[in-house]
Design a protein around this nucleic acid. Structure first.
Lengths: 198, 198
DNA sequence: GGTGCCATGTAAATGGTTACATGATTGA
DNA sequence: TCAATCATGTAACCATTTACATGGCACC
């Protein structure tokens, strides 16, 4: 249940409404812990009813401003210091596909890996300009946001390098699988020898 | 809906029962796309009713052996070649915490990052022996499993290096946040200036 | 005859996504 | 007054997790 703690964390920077929080999610937490409107409002309600946050003021348009309580702050710290984060990257569709790359041709498998390298490269390009945006903000998140950003850059670079390596690896391999299942027009002859060992 | 494709992929290596598939999930796909018993049996039912797999034989103890159909194989290839994988690592509890590290002391923040570096190192240690296990198996997954394993090793190394770097970064920073909120035994006196917004 | 593994399933709860619904306020 | 934005909420659905339930078969 990390959404709960994400909200406590954001509110610990200062009071905010559900609407405000949603924007913060979109701006700074989007790549780390996305949340939808339904989720945020529902969880705020639950947090309020368990006393971890409270409504501090009601503005126009029914706006409710929440602030974290001492109990909430304590819970946030407990979460940060006394519990281990769950496994990172528990599921990866990208890697799942890798397992079944034997079902398509060598060319297609190579194309897939090249595409993953590209996506890594693109991600680096998209992340880079965020550096300045983060420095510009000066809420308490910016310092730590920079650390998270760096993680993203390193992750993307790792992804790119791995994919390029993997493509090389594939080429070094005999085409015993990958070709046999896929070529619709394959004759009996062993025409599948695309493996050139350099 | 990747579980569906994971099952199609596993069955494309040869027919198997739900029970067999579960074991394969535990052995080779555990770190990439874990699945529970409930999920597997339910999804097999759905796959069978849409004609992507079929029951090829019924053994003792009610065992049903499934095989992928031509339609299923086509769907698997379509998934592999014509769709892009969703974003990797959409949520990271580990990184979410990083955003809120300002709520605890510098020491605690440092300890957190050091722990993450440790976990990365440990993961490398756990993954290494898998290399041999994978070479030993000779189903079609082993070749591509090696690629996935390498991803895990690189990922873990990245995690470790990043965490060590981040810890260094923290130390270079003035302790303006991190102390003010955390001292439990703080007296009323304004030693810590916590109430900048009261 | 009993232990342990093979084998399948159902039910309830949690968490997340998408879509729907509504209304107040501000500023052009 | 009209459009955009602020602001909150509900309902339905899907995926995942955990727990429960059951029974056959093999081997000692």
């Amino acid at each position: 249940m990390s959404l709960r703690h994400a909200l406590l964390g954001l509110l610990s920077q200062g009071p905010a409404s559900g609407y405000d929080l949603l924007k913060t999610f979109d701006i700074s937490l989007a790549n780390v812990w996305p949340a939808t409107q339904s989720q945020v409002y529902a969880e705020l309600g639950r947090l309020a009813s368990t006393g971890l946050v409270e409504v501090t003021s009601e503005g126009p348009r029914g706006r409710k401003e929440y602030a974290v309580t001492e109990a909430g702050r304590a819970e946030l710290r407990r979460w940060l210091t006394e519990t281990d984060p769950g496994p990172l990257a528990r599921r990866s569709e990208m890697l799942l596909r890798v397992f079944f790359l034997g079902e398509v041709s060598h060319e297609q498998a190579g194309a897939y890996l090249r595409r993953q390298a590209e996506l890594g490269e693109e991600r680096i390009g998209k992340l880079a300009p965020l550096r300045e945006m983060i420095s510009a903000m000066d809420d308490g998140l910016s310092v730590y946001g920079r650390l998270a950003l760096e993680w993203g850059m390193r992750f993307s670079a790792m992804q790119r390098d791995w994919a390029l390596w993997a493509e090389q690896e594939l080429e070094r391999l005999p085409a015993d699988r990958g070709c046999d299942r896929d070529c619709e027009r394959k004759p009996e002859s062993g025409a599948c020898e695309e493996a050139d060992r350099t």
